Amino acid sequence: MNSEKENFRTQAPASKSLFYRFSQLVGFLVGARFFVAALLTFALYVSTFFLFNQDESFRKFVFDFKVHGIIFCTVLTILAGGIINQFYDFEKDHVVKPFRTRIQSFISQRYFLYAYLFLGIISLGVAFIISYRVFIFFLIYQFFMWFYSHKLSRMLILNNLTFVSLTLYPFFGMMVYYETFSWKVLLMAVFLFLVLLCIDIVKDTLTRSVDKAFGYDTIPNSFQPNTSKTIIGALLVVIMAVSVKLICRQGISGIMGYYFEAGLVIMALCIYLVIKYTRKTKFITLNILRFWVFIGILAMLFNGIENKL
Score class of each variant (00 low, 15 high):
Gly257Asn: 02
Asn226Asp: 14
Ala241Met: 14
Ser253Ala: 10
Tyr272Arg: 11
Gly263Gln: 02
Glu261Tyr: 10
Cys248Phe: 15
Asp217Thr: 11
Thr227Cys: 05
Ile255Cys: 08
Ile231Glu: 00
Ile239Phe: 01
Ile239Val: 13
Leu236Met: 12
Leu273Ala: 04
Ile232Lys: 03
Ile252Met: 12
Val274Tyr: 02
Phe223His: 06
Arg249Ile: 11
Asn226Trp: 10
Cys248Arg: 14
Ile255Leu: 10
Ala234Cys: 06
Val238Cys: 11
Thr227Glu: 12
Asn226Cys: 07
Val274Ile: 15
Val242Trp: 00
Gln224Ile: 06
Thr218Phe: 08
Arg249Cys: 15
Met256Lys: 08
Arg249His: 15
Asn221Ser: 10
Thr227Lys: 09
Thr230Gly: 06
Val244Pro: 03
Ala268Glu: 02
Tyr258Pro: 00
Ile219Ser: 01
Ser228Arg: 06
Arg249Lys: 15
Leu273Thr: 04
Val244Asn: 09
Ala241Ser: 13
Thr230Cys: 05
Ala241Cys: 12
Val242Glu: 04
Arg249Glu: 15
Tyr272Thr: 11
Val242Ile: 13
Tyr272Val: 14
Ile266Gln: 05
Ile271Pro: 08
Leu235Thr: 05
Ala262Pro: 00
Gln250Lys: 12
Lys229Val: 00
Leu269Val: 12
Ala234Glu: 03
Val274Asp: 13
Cys248Asp: 14
Thr218Lys: 09
Cys270Met: 03
Ile231Leu: 09
Ile247Ser: 09
Ile219His: 01
Ser228His: 00
Arg249Phe: 15
Ala241Gln: 13
Met267Asn: 13
Pro220Ile: 05
Met267Asp: 09
Gln224Asp: 14
Gln250Glu: 15
Gln224Arg: 13
Ile219Pro: 00
Pro225Asn: 08
Gly257Asp: 03
Gly263Trp: 01
Gly233Arg: 14
Tyr272Met: 11
Thr230Pro: 01
Phe260Asn: 02
Met256Val: 09
Ala262Gln: 01
Leu273Gly: 04
Leu269Gly: 00
Leu246Thr: 11
Gly251Pro: 02
Leu264Ala: 03
Ile266Trp: 03
Thr227Val: 14
Ser243Gln: 08
Val244Trp: 13
Val242Lys: 03
Glu261Asn: 07
Leu235Gly: 06
Thr227Gln: 11
Ser253Val: 12
Pro225Asp: 10
Ile271Leu: 13
Gly254Glu: 08
Tyr272Asn: 05
Leu246Asp: 12
Asn226Glu: 15
Thr227Gly: 04
Ser243Pro: 11
Gly263Arg: 01
Tyr272Asp: 07
Gly254Gln: 08
Met240Ala: 15
Thr218Gln: 11
Thr218Asn: 07
Ser222Pro: 01
Pro220Asn: 04
Tyr259Leu: 01
Gln250Ser: 13
Leu236Ser: 09
Val237Glu: 04
Met240Phe: 05
Ile252Asn: 00
Val244Thr: 11
Ile232Leu: 01
Ile219Asn: 00
Val265Thr: 09
Thr227Leu: 07
